[in-house]
Nucleic acid binder design. Structure first.
Lengths: 215, 215
DNA sequence: GCCGTTATTGATCAACTGGCCAATAACGTG
DNA sequence: CACGTTATTGGCCAGTTGATCAATAACGGC
């Protein structure tokens, strides 16, 4: 009753308020897209006045770029950590492909695709996009290089092959964004394609056999 | 001197004016993106008053969707015709991959990527996107099916494989949009990957040998 | 407890958007 | 030649956007 109209947001430490705004902005980007990041939208979700958002982020362009980086960097680190816990390079690469094709990451894919477009008019964002693409490529490249070192892969150029794999994954995900239920066996086909370009043995990148079949 | 201020655009036949507006809109989309399609932008480029654009296109949403379809359908037909003129399925598929990775088509790729994002808020556009993706997939699917029929390919599911190839190509192109000079040997890697998923002989999809080497 | 610092507000501004419409003028049919 | 049709205009409206700023109020050091 009494707080149906909270006239003024409680004063908070800048670090705390800044974190709140960042979280509000991230959730908007994931739910409605990067282009839904406006001073008023962010302010409404955070429960503050529009001017306060501008106070913390004098430029919306930078807020968009920072939010993009925050979202995708978190995913990169998460997947990299996941893959780092596996044994052989084949298992690592297989798990990486399986994870990236997971439908639950479609919201992040949407952010990627929108960033590619918006980067055309927002140079700050474009720079962030290139940075984050480099980070992704490095994860894959290291994995491929490890496989080459162990003799499991035979790709002569891990750098180039990593870009190629990244591009394929992005394309398949973007496609799933529009035609979510179109393709069957995405993972199987992708695994075969990746085996070919990294020079891995056929079927060596297919998902681990069904649980219980080898025990 | 006399025509520095043409007060009024000459009255033209509706079909002619409509074609002019369509051309103006297409050029804007290719140069500045689909989101630059506004009543005033189109009017300025066509040399008419903003109201006239609204007169011919009561809904901007539909104008955007129509322009998207016009641009990408032209490309699909062009490439389909090009491929239809080749001999074997291998040659056709190889030429298709080579053509689609051509840097000169980046402006069309940008339109594709933006359409994927804008389709989220423009249902008319989203519908057009699905339609044009289907058209692309059909071209590839027929090519793969022809190869299976001739015994050159062994893909069990041309439908699914075609979607996969389309996704890969789109992803690599979108990547080139941002990192235009990043990857070397894009075509070679892609050809290997496609050979694997269509079940073609190794190197059978590489570009035709250097002129003179086999003659 | 006083006071400077600053977090927070809400209004305002210019610039843009799509859509609408009365007025104008050029065309083709009669 | 007259007249109805309609291509074309330009202004208007309500909505959105990012940015700015004076006013307010809460915090923390003294």
């Amino acid at each position: 009753m009494s707080n149906t109209k909270p006239r003024r947001a409680p004063r908070k430490a800048p670090a705390e308020r800044s974190a709140e705004l960042a979280q509000a902005t991230r959730s908007i980007a994931l739910e409605q897209g990067l282009s839904a990041i406006t001073l008023r939208n962010v302010a409404r979700r955070a429960g503050v006045a529009p001017g306060l958002v501008a106070h913390y982020h004098p430029s919306v362009e930078m807020l968009v770029a920072g939010t993009f980086s925050s979202i995708v960097a978190a995913e990169t680190e998460e997947v990299a950590a996941l893959v780092a816990g596996t044994g052989t390079p084949q298992q690592g690469l297989s798990l990486l492909l399986e994870t990236l094709l997971d439908d639950r990451r479609l919201d992040v894919t949407a952010v990627w695709v929108e960033a590619w477009s918006l980067g055309r008019r927002n140079e700050t964002l474009a720079s962030s996009v290139r940075e984050q693409m480099d980070a992704w490529q490095a994860v894959i490249r290291d994995l491929v290089a490890a496989g080459v070192a162990s003799g499991d892969f035979s790709a002569p150029d891990a750098e180039s092959v990593a870009w190629q794999i990244l591009g394929m994954v992005d394309g398949l995900n973007a496609q799933a964004l529009v035609r979510w239920n179109g393709v069957a066996d995405r993972h199987t086909h992708l695994a075969r394609a990746v085996e070919a370009i990294v020079g891995a043995a056929p079927s060596s990148l297919l998902p681990a056999a069904a649980p219980g079949s080898d025990r």
